[in-house]
Design a binder for these strands. Structure first.
Length: 481
RNA sequence: GCUCCCAUCGUCUAGCGGUCAAGGACACCGGCCUCUCACGCCGGAGACACGGGUUCGAUUCCCGUUGGGAGUACCA
């Protein structure tokens, strides 16, 4: 079994393309097949090497490694279409010689007029086949080569997702298979490449379902057996319309930058258009063992960021803490943390905020307070006003006395030392926790008291609580006058 | 316009003629937990687009309508 993903380097790796790549990758891995990556770079005007680099990088980021293609080679190459240009001509000549294709030197204007006339008559706009039986030779001036599509009958294929798809040949144009510049267009090139690369299953988006009959016709004309097809539903925007930038991020790279984990993106992508009973959370390895074309759904799916965000948190909680911490580091710095202050408190710090954050960006913002100079804390004045007041001063003084004597600065040690004091004093834990939270973080919401104290470390904790105490004392003095 | 594809809660989906007074997940609402916010747990509201058939029986099969998507290039 051989599958392929064939992006054209004319833009970023789109989430729809990523899902197509994922489906192909999973099917290949599931059945011990081969996953081929082919670069369709024949659109010289729009293709750019930077895009190709980016696409390769993003596929690797998603852990969708290919067995043959750029960077890894393979026996069925080359894997860039620009390096395969000499493969196509002979087949076109063969079709011409066999009378299955013909040269056409009709002017663009003439063809255009014919199309408009047909459309006006309520018919599908097509070429009128003027040159079909003229038997034009190579010396007919500027010309294209068109496939002689059967006038009668129909062309069908059995799609693994949709069942039998059939279309009348009368609806299929005598489409171009060699442009006037000598290069064959997409429909011809994919067929030749897929055939020469031994592709057995073509899994792609539903937007290709309409040119599948044309491709089948080419396979037949060349005397080849078409591969098996499976057309996955398209990914739509949240409103059901075509997904576009106006709906937000559409490229894999953008989601990486927004702090999504590749594990979560893969998980979300696979579930949009595929299901396995009621299961929701899958690792790539789990997918490899259960993925099947049978699970692909037919209807287009809308992009739902909320579900992606939920899955991202699920994965942040599943990840090994040290791993998560390293992935969070750059986001922490981006949020304003001082790299020099990020020390071995990183892992415990990240653990205190991961269940409150849905992306690495949020994780970075929420863990920022651990690793900034005290004067760089982001103060929520409302919270300060509410929790650092005159009456707070004696509480913080009392707490400081307890804290200074703590030997075991761990969650358990801190709780064991402070709880008895709180109870003895007869004060609510909240009366202590909130002032401490504001002193440490600048905000009224955040991690639990014990875990936060333990994670931030004795030195910083005592320093910031003292500062909070002083602030409270100042208000006490102001109130007393 | 024409051709093709599609149609279960707001969203992703389970369902492959009776086991469905339609199940799960996200989001939403309420409660519990609780030092805040979360997490977690419990509960709630919420869907078979419509109309014809076929059948003893349709969410499930067929046709139509409506709605949505795609294609309609010497782009991929």
């Amino acid at each position: 079994m051989r599958l392929r993903f064939a992006p054209s380097p004319t833009g970023h790796l789109h989430i729809g393309g990523a899902r197509t790549a994922l489906f192909n990758f999973l099917l290949a891995r599931r059945h011990g097949g081969v996953f081929v990556l082919r670069i369709e770079d024949t659109d010289r005007a729009r293709s750019r090497p930077e895009y190709e680099e980016e696409i390769l990088r993003d596929l690797r980021w998603l852990s969708l490694d290919w067995d043959e293609g750029p960077g890894v080679g393979g026996s069925r190459g080359p894997y860039h279409q620009m390096q395969r240009l000499d493969h196509y001509g002979p087949y076109i000549d063969q079709l011409l010689a066999e009378g299955k294709a013909y040269r056409c030197n009709c002017s663009a204007e003439r063809i255009q007029q014919g199309r408009e006339a047909l459309q006006a008559a309520g018919r599908k706009p097509m070429y009128d086949r003027h040159c079909r039986d003229l038997d034009l030779g190579p010396d007919c001036g500027e010309h294209v080569v068109r496939l002689k599509v059967p006038l009668e009958g129909s062309t069908a294929f059995d799609d693994h997702v949709r069942g039998r798809v059939e279309i009348d040949n009368a609806e299929i144009d005598d489409f171009v298979i060699r442009r006037s510049n000598g290069l064959p267009p997409y429909n011809f090139v994919v067929v030749v490449d897929d055939h020469e690369m031994g592709i057995t299953h073509v899994v792609r988006g539903e937007d290709h379902i309409n040119n599948t009959p044309k491709q089948v016709l080419i396979y037949r004309a060349l005397g080849w057996e078409p591969p098996e097809f499976a057309h996955a539903p398209l990914i739509l925007g949240p409103d059901g319309s075509r997904l576009s930038k106006r709906h937000g991020a559409v490229s894999v790279g953008a989601y990486r930058e927004e702090g999504y984990l590749p594990e979560a993106l893969v998980n979300y992508l696979v579930r949009l258009g595929w299901s396995h009973g009621d299961d929701e959370v899958f690792s790539l390895d789990e997918l490899i063992s259960v993925f099947s074309l049978d699970g692909i759904t037919k209807a287009g799916g809308r992009w739902d960021v909320d579900k992606l965000r939920w899955l991202n948190q699920v994965w942040m909680k599943r990840l090994d803490p040290a791993d998560l911490a390293e992935r969070a580091r750059p986001f922490l710095v981006a949020a304003g943390a001082d790299p020099a202050l990020i020390d071995d408190r990183l892992v415990p710090a990240v653990l205190t905020v991961r269940e409150r954050a849905r992306t690495l960006v949020e994780l970075g913002e929420q863990a920022r307070f651990y690793f900034v100079p005290d004067d760089a804390l982001d103060w929520d004045e409302q919270a300060v006003k509410k929790h650092i007041k005159a009456s707070t001063r004696p509480i913080l003084d009392g707490l400081l006395a307890v804290l200074e004597g703590v030997e075991d600065w761990s969650q358990e040690g801190l709780e064991a030392a402070v709880k008895p004091w709180v109870e003895a004093e007869g004060i609510k834990l909240g009366k202590v926790a909130q002032p401490v939270r504001v002193s440490l973080t600048g905000k009224g919401v955040g991690p639990g008291l014990w875990e936060m104290l333990a994670a931030i470390g004795r030195e910083v904790a005592l320093r910031r609580i003292r500062a909070g105490r002083d602030k409270a004392a100042a208000r006490e003095a102001a109130a007393g006058r």
